[in-house]
Amino acid sequence: MKIYDKDFDKVINGVVASGSLTYREAIEKLTPLISKTEFQRKLQDKKFYAKLERDIVDGCVMPPITLAFVEKSIDINTEIDKIESYFQKEFDKSFVLDGIQRLNTLLRVSKNEKFDFEKKLYFNIIFSDKVDKLLYRMITLNNGQKPMTPRHQVEMLMANVFDFDKLGIEVQTEKERADKIKINSFNKADIEQAYLAYMANSPMVDNKKIIQDKMDELIVNKIISTEPNDDSGNFEDVIKAIAKLQVKQTNLKWLKQANNLVGFAVGMKTSHTEIMKLTPDDFEKSLEIFEKSFSDFNPSKIKLGKMRRELSFEYFKNYSKLKDYDSYDLLEYFSDITND
């Protein structure tokens, strides 16, 4: 166990120290703290943390947890080695301010034969003279704000990770499009929805019949239940494929349609190798066959948007098989799967 640094929190008038310990030490010293205080959150259903369990076994660095002490003797002038010594002796007097679910997950996964007991767990320790100050900090850490929805997380991730100009496509926000639409640009909200669907491995990530909070829960469940696959490529491949294929105006127009884009993106998760090889001309010919088959469905008998999203997903998910179908074969195939 090691303390690296310290700082002073002026809001709660407390010292915050940062350090690490091994998973073994965390299990021995910290997991007994999980049910220590009455105001801590009830443990969630373990299925919500199934993805984290798999990631821990695979060697991820678990997000830091936060511990707390009601203690007057530790102040900003206390030396780091004394803070470290204090924690070593008095750790059982602390409680978990943020990270109960992670510690509980760590305890469960420690029974896996592949578990690495020497992996580091990083943590912060807050020292304050009153428990209500620590409770305030815990509320701001856990419940002070409405948790980010999966859509918001995707939005934040895309804003910080993807450089669309370098990847080769033009993207505009709703506000930018309201001012002036660039003819060949994609709606950023459509790209974000495609990314969310890609993460969930399902084209159906939007259902107006379901209240939004419950829909977000369903999306989270889909994401955490999707097994990682080293052969599935990544969403950057989708952007690169769009940049390559959009040079044909027919392709660009088709890809800019939100339902098509979502279905195509999720389908690429399975068929990225095959699709990345396509030329713009090849893609245009495939779209011609797809659209011919799709146009033969009776629009009065189907929900066009939902059907388009599902069938574009189905087509590109199974592209290695369906690429050689003519429009009649493809119509028969689509008819069979939609009648199941």
Rank of each mutant, 00 (worst) to 15 (best):
M1R: 03
K6I: 03
K6L: 02
G14R: 03
A17P: 01
T22E: 09
E28A: 15
T31E: 04
E38S: 15
K42H: 08
K42N: 09
L43S: 10
K46P: 05
K46I: 06
R54G: 12
D58F: 01
G59L: 03
V61M: 08
M62L: 12
L67I: 12
L67Q: 05
E71H: 08
S73H: 11
T78G: 08
D81R: 07
D81G: 01
I83E: 04
E84C: 08
F91S: 10
S94A: 15
Q101T: 06
D116Y: 08
K119A: 13
K119Y: 03
K120Q: 11
N124Q: 12
I126S: 02
F127R: 04
F127E: 06
S128T: 01
D129L: 05
D132A: 09
L134T: 07
I139S: 05
T140L: 08
L141Y: 03
K146F: 06
K146M: 10
M148V: 05
P150Y: 07
V154A: 05
M156G: 03
M158W: 01
F164I: 07
I169D: 00
E170M: 06
K175F: 12
D179Y: 06
D179N: 10
D179C: 02
I181V: 12
N187S: 08
N187R: 06
Q193T: 13
L196N: 00
M199G: 02
P203D: 04
N207I: 01
K208D: 14
K208W: 12
K209P: 00
V220Q: 00
K222S: 11
S225W: 00
D231I: 02
D231Q: 09
G233N: 00
E236C: 08
K240N: 07
A243Q: 09
Q257I: 02
L261V: 09
V262T: 08
A265C: 04
G267E: 02
T270S: 09
T273G: 10
D282A: 13
F283N: 02
E284N: 14
E288R: 02
I289L: 09
F290P: 03
E291L: 03
F294S: 00
K301M: 10
N318W: 07
D324R: 15
D324W: 15
L331I: 08
S335A: 13
